[in-house]
């Protein structure tokens, strides 16, 4: 049913990934293997969940740079609370707390964006600074290196593990199931529910959405709360997998995540973006971050590569569109 659009961002990113794999395999035959794949999947979990959140915001016509601060705020306060109260909560409950904190923080964005109708970039820059500052000043700035037992227990849960023919160990943690769950849930939301279509609609034309009776504010509130919740989830997964809650973590990652989403075809002007594209963008960014050396490019060049990919991947289509527009008068 879905036709492949050979000019789409998705397809272009896919080609770059294939080229990457071929070149990497040529220079290091062991690259094309299960351990590499599982490394990639594991490294993509947190960025992937973030990126899905960013995708939703971009589709709705906004931008969010505060999600990393939300994530670290949620993971740290959750871990700290659970530890200090000495509760032995099972990990699902710990996760739930973190997600709820994330949602609550997302609602702060929603108040300023949906309530005051302020520009989303500026608002989320403000909350990024305020949340991180608040966390490090009032909650704590000390690393928690022994996280609650239930989180440690979660980090040991794996879906598959084994050793391949070359003797390399591989495993896929259960955390990956969360990424899958988020993808499926968000896909369902975006394509199968009217709420999801409302998000596309307000990103496509805010004014039209108001006119046909879409509750724009409520939709925006939902988007920022959802993204906050995803950030809370990504944060607590990150802390559990690393078995450490570091209040200085994650912040600084936001531009890479936005880069992944934009590479996958989501437009900053709103209304466009797919989950497939986003995931492809994430795969590409994770590969560049982890395996650039295999292409013979030193890993210090990774942000040059990502930056160049963004400029080329979004600049060329934009140039073509501009020329076509001039020709059309």
């Amino acid at each position: 049913m879905p036709k492949i659009n050979y000019k789409s961002n998705e397809f272009l990113v896919f080609l770059v990934i294939v080229a990457f794999v071929i070149v990497a395999t040529a220079s290091y035959p062991g690259f094309f293997s299960i351990p590499t794949l599982f490394d990639l999947l594991r490294n993509g979990i947190v960025i992937g969940i973030f990126a899905i959140g960013v995708l939703l915001v971009l589709i709705s016509g906004g931008i969010d740079v505060s999600f990393t601060a939300v994530a670290v705020f949620a993971l740290f306060t959750t871990t700290l609370t659970v530890k200090q109260l000495g509760l032995d909560l099972p990990w699902p409950l710990v996760f739930l707390v973190s997600v709820l904190i994330g949602m609550g923080l997302g609602l702060i964005n929603a108040v300023f964006i949906a309530g005051f109708r302020l520009p989303t970039l500026i608002v989320t820059l403000g909350t990024l600074s305020a949340l991180r500052g608040f966390l490090l000043t009032f909650v704590g700035s000390q690393l928690i290196s022994n996280v609650p037992p239930s989180m440690q227990q979660f980090s040991r849960l794996v879906i598959v593990r084994g050793t391949n023919a070359q003797g390399f160990f591989y495993s896929l943690p259960w955390a990956f199931a969360f990424l899958v769950g988020v993808v499926v849930l968000t896909w369902f939301l975006l394509t199968r529910t009217l709420l999801g279509r409302n998000i596309f609609a307000i990103g496509g034309s805010l004014e039209s959405a108001r006119r046909i009776g879409i509750n724009v504010r409520l939709t925006q509130v939902f988007v920022y709360a959802y993204v906050g919740g995803l950030a809370g989830l990504a944060g607590i997964i990150h802390a559990s997998m690393a078995r450490v809650a570091n209040p200085f973590d994650l912040v600084g990652l936001e531009l890479s995540v936005i880069a992944a989403t934009v590479l996958g075809g989501a437009r900053l002007s709103g209304g466009y973006g797919t989950i497939t594209g986003t995931l492809l963008g994430v795969i590409l960014i994770v590969m560049v971050n982890n395996s650039l050396i295999l292409l013979g490019i030193p890993s210090t060049w990774q942000s040059v590569v990502i930056g160049a990919l963004i400029l080329l991947g979004t600049g060329l289509p934009s140039y073509q569109a501009k020329r076509a527009a001039r020709k059309a008068g």
């Binding site: 199968r192 009217l194 709420l195 279509r197 609609a201 496509g204 039209s208 046909i212 009776g213 209304g271």
Partner: peptide
Amino acid sequence: LFPNLSVAENIAFSLELAEGRTLV
């Protein structure tokens, strides 16, 4: 109209909305 949505969706959107649907 919504430039990013399909013709079918643009036509049927307000009706679905008015009927208070949850699912597409």
